[in-house]
Amino acid sequence: MTAVKFLSDEYLDELGDLVTPDLPEVPHVNVRLQFHATDTPEGEVDYHLVAERGVVVRAGRGLLADSDLAIRASYRDLLAFESGELHAATAFVTGQFAVTGDRAKVLDLMVVLQSGNYQRFIADLWARTTW
């Protein structure tokens, strides 16, 4: 198990491995999410996650031309979120995650983030993550 630094190219490459098309689907859950991380050791970092029918089909570094939802957050808040110290709902309500776009898609995003597959994958990745 190789250690990866949070939001580095290696970390975001690993995030791309989250794609698991053979999982049970949730037909109404579709979201194209753009993250913009500020104040990181790597500078500003853009990465994305695309879920179709409740399953992540694409994730990694870069911008989505047609995102439904965009989240802008500090490195520190994203770190707290990924480590489990900051719940997504809290981050949205308190403004730690600045959200633009189709706010109804936040509910779709919550379904994806709370799925067992996402939680297991992130826990495994987090166990190898440094910051």
Score class of each variant (00 low, 15 high):
1 M>G: 13
3 A>C: 06
5 K>F: 04
5 K>W: 05
6 F>C: 09
7 L>A: 12
8 S>F: 10
9 D>Q: 10
13 D>S: 15
14 E>P: 01
20 T>D: 05
23 L>Y: 04
29 V>E: 01
30 N>Q: 01
32 R>F: 06
34 Q>N: 07
36 H>R: 15
37 A>L: 14
39 D>S: 15
40 T>H: 09
41 P>D: 09
41 P>T: 07
44 E>C: 00
47 Y>R: 06
48 H>Q: 07
51 A>Y: 06
52 E>F: 08
57 V>M: 02
59 A>D: 05
59 A>I: 04
60 G>L: 11
64 L>G: 04
65 A>H: 08
74 S>H: 05
75 Y>P: 04
75 Y>E: 10
78 L>M: 13
78 L>Q: 05
79 L>C: 03
81 F>C: 08
91 A>D: 01
93 V>D: 00
94 T>M: 05
98 A>L: 08
99 V>N: 02
100 T>A: 07
103 R>I: 15
106 V>P: 00
107 L>Y: 10
107 L>G: 06
109 L>T: 09
110 M>K: 12
111 V>W: 09
112 V>P: 05
114 Q>K: 05
116 G>V: 08
119 Q>W: 00
119 Q>F: 01
120 R>F: 01
120 R>I: 01
121 F>V: 00
126 W>E: 12
129 T>H: 02
129 T>W: 05
130 T>P: 13
130 T>R: 11
131 W>S: 13
